[in-house]
């Protein structure tokens, strides 16, 4: 019981102290990692808990970022109202897209979300009057000393992460989460048992979307410049999936662990070899999928040690032919 309080308390203390101890570079880097932790956790709700591979999830990030950018630069909105509206737009998009696409299963759903995301990206790019099109749009930046600005975005991302972890934790223990897991395990059976699968799938995707959209909104304000290829980048979703895989799909803390591991390696090691950056990411993806598709958390939950896994590498996983 004591450990259950002391460890989170120490972690909290550690995270709160970051902006006061580290230099600007590190604070920004950890903010970036926190952002990916939120995004991966949000994707985990629809893909890990509910089992729907939403490869187009960046659409909510892009919509959130663009809503904030347009409202702030053209509508004269302040950041917080713009942020709330961005979250709302993301939910509306998730409900509408969900009604269309969540009827599809497996690969068809994955492709449908990718197609919808690309279609919306090109639409945003073509609405030049509103969005400035492909050249991108600038957002009025937050004014203040670098330390204050860095601290603001750091704590904002930290709060978002705590919020989504609380949501994920609650979901994993209540009716909603059981419904999600039942859909993942066997959708038809879940329907027969009286779960309104369509409704729960849409709830799941909306939860995922609202956090993704709000993160997009914060990103737009933080970077104060966005363009369609960046905020709708499919590659980000792939990175999130790898984070989920590294940490453990369908677990509460897995995506966060994965995000910290992948982004730390990526920023500290590969950013020095710009020419190899992508290839190394590709290689890591392939190795993770081949050898540890159940994630690091499975080391704890199954009681199998790292040694066991290494010993059994040549045998592969249950996905083997």
């Amino acid at each position: 019981m004591k450990r259950k309080i002391i460890i989170p308390a120490l972690l909290m203390l550690l995270f709160i102290s970051v902006p006061f101890v580290f230099s600007g570079f590190w604070v920004r880097l950890i903010t970036y990692i926190l952002m990916f932790s939120v995004l991966a956790s949000a994707l985990n709700i629809i893909s890990g808990f509910t089992g729907y591979a939403a490869f187009g999830n960046m659409v909510f990030f892009g919509l959130g970022a663009y809503t904030t950018a347009v409202l702030m630069s053209k509508g004269g909105f302040a950041f917080f109202p713009a942020l709330l509206l961005s979250g709302a737009i993301a939910v509306v998009a998730a409900v509408l897209l969900g009604m269309l696409l969540l009827r599809l299963k497996g690969h068809y759903f994955a492709l449908g979300t990718l197609g919808a995301a690309e279609a919306i990206k090109y639409t945003v790019e073509n609405l030049t009057g509103l969005t400035e099109g492909g050249q991108g749009i600038t957002v009025p930046p937050l004014r203040g000393s670098p330390a204050v600005v860095n601290g603001f975005f750091y704590f904002f991302m930290l709060l978002l992460l705590i919020a989504i972890l609380v949501v994920a934790w609650r979901i994993s223990k209540n009716r909603l989460g059981y419904a999600f897991k039942a859909i993942r395990a066997n959708e038809q059976a879940a329907g027969v048992m009286g779960i309104n699968t369509t409704r729960y799938k849409i709830i799941s995707w909306s939860l995922s979307a609202v956090f993704t959209g709000i993160t997009g909104s914060v990103y737009a304000y933080w970077f104060s410049y966005i363009d369609p290829p960046t905020v709708f980048d499919v590659m980000w979703v792939i990175k999130m999936f790898v984070m989920i895989l590294i940490g453990g799909a369908g677990t509460v803390f897995g995506p966060v662990i994965g995000a910290f591991i992948l982004e730390t390696i990526s920023e500290l090691v590969w950013s020095r070899f710009i020419n190899l950056h992508l290839g190394m990411l590709g290689l890591i993806i392939i190795l993770v999928v081949l050898f540890m598709p159940n994630g690091l958390i499975s080391l704890v939950t199954t009681g199998r040690g790292l040694k066991d896994i290494i010993k059994n590498l040549h045998r592969g996983t249950e996905s083997r032919l």
Partner: peptide
């Protein structure tokens, strides 16, 4: 080695 895995395993791969 992964062909029987779920959608997001093979797609990510």
């Amino acid at each position: 080695r992964v062909v029987r895995g779920s959608v997001f395993i093979t797609l990510t791969f």
